[in-house]
């Protein structure tokens, strides 16, 4: 159903829209267009002048093997975190959804990691897994694994995946729990009477009914891993060892801020922007419309 408000003055509706438009323009369109403009410029080594170079920054970017590696890193990182955190939080949410003694405390405790700032979460994890200081490093070494996230790229990636997952579980947990609670209890009961055991009930009734939540969370998690894990990466590995944990976003920072290549960094941001727009479009197109019950 379409809602229509009628205004007597032509002026008023625009005034009502103005605050929202102002915020969007000042905080999104302006910086975004600046980034786009910047991506066509190249600065001299001292940052004193810049010159229009067209698509030179982009061409240079796609010639760098480091950029492709960052893409692969991002893909590995985001897939691992999304799958792992969704699976863990779904498991936790199904358990929390049962009527358990102390269930409220359990739920509250599960939400806490979300309140920890990414950088601090990173520091916590590096304290536990630092090759020489980490409290958990010694038991890992004792098992015979030469654990060293500062030198071994796979170890570094694993540590990042774990810390980013740990942080994201709370968020996913909340949504899954809300999703589970919105499934009418009688539907589950009907399935129980219809002869479906707990596992079969989960896969044939609960999981399909949760799919709108799951799709939403997949998109949100991918966006999270792309953009909000910067603090964790910076604190845990700093993109190392040798760029093996540098993701696309971390590379924007490393190239622009540390490398001083503003044009190249801007070009990367523009590419990231396109990716996010794509993800959002997918979300709107498929999630909002098709998977509703």
């Amino acid at each position: 159903m379409e809602k229509r408000a009628l205004f007597s003055s032509k002026f008023l509706p625009y005034m009502l829209l103005l605050p929202q438009l102002a915020i969007t323009i000042i905080f999104f369109y302006l910086p975004a267009s600046q980034a786009i403009w910047q991506s066509f410029l190249m600065e001299d080594a001292f940052g004193l002048s810049s010159e229009f170079v067209g698509f030179e920054n982009y061409r240079y970017l796609f010639q760098q093997p480091e950029y492709y590696r960052a893409m692969v890193n991002t893909a590995v990182f985001s897939t691992a975190v999304a799958v792992l955190s969704l699976a863990c939080s779904l498991l936790l949410a199904t358990q929390a959804d049962k009527n358990l003694r102390g269930g409220e405390a359990y739920k509250t405790l599960l939400i806490w990691p979300y309140a920890v700032a990414p950088a601090i979460a990173g520091v916590l994890w590096i304290f536990m897994f630092h090759p020489s200081l980490g409290t958990l490093t010694r038991p890992i070494r004792a098992v015979g694994i030469d654990w060293n996230p500062l030198l071994n790229g796979d170890h570094a990636m694993l540590l990042l995946v774990l810390s980013a997952t740990w942080k994201q579980i709370s968020y996913n947990f909340l949504f899954f729990l809300a999703g589970l609670q919105s499934i009418p209890k009688s539907v589950i009961e009907a399935a129980a009477i219809d002869g479906a055991g707990p596992l079969r009930r989960f896969w044939t009734i609960i999981f399909p009914l949760l799919s709108p939540t799951t799709f939403f969370l997949i998109v949100v998690n991918i966006v999270y891993v792309f953009f909000d894990t910067f603090g964790i990466i910076d604190a845990v590995t700093g993109g190392g060892p040798a760029g093996q944990t540098t993701t696309l976003v971390y590379k924007v920072y490393a190239d622009g801020r540390l490398g001083g290549d503003l044009g190249g960094s801007a070009a990367q941001s523009v590419i990231l922007m396109v990716i996010v727009i794509g993800l959002t479009a997918i979300q709107f197109k498929y999630v909002e419309r098709k998977v509703q019950y």
């Binding site: 009688s186 539907v187 009961e189 219809d194 009734i205």
Partner: peptide
């Protein structure tokens, strides 16, 4: 499941998907 009964619920409890 093993009681050999069937139940009709107030809100029908059909499987929406």
């Amino acid at each position: 499941a093993d009681r050999d009964i069937a139940m009709v619920f107030q809100n029908y409890a059909l499987y929406p998907h």
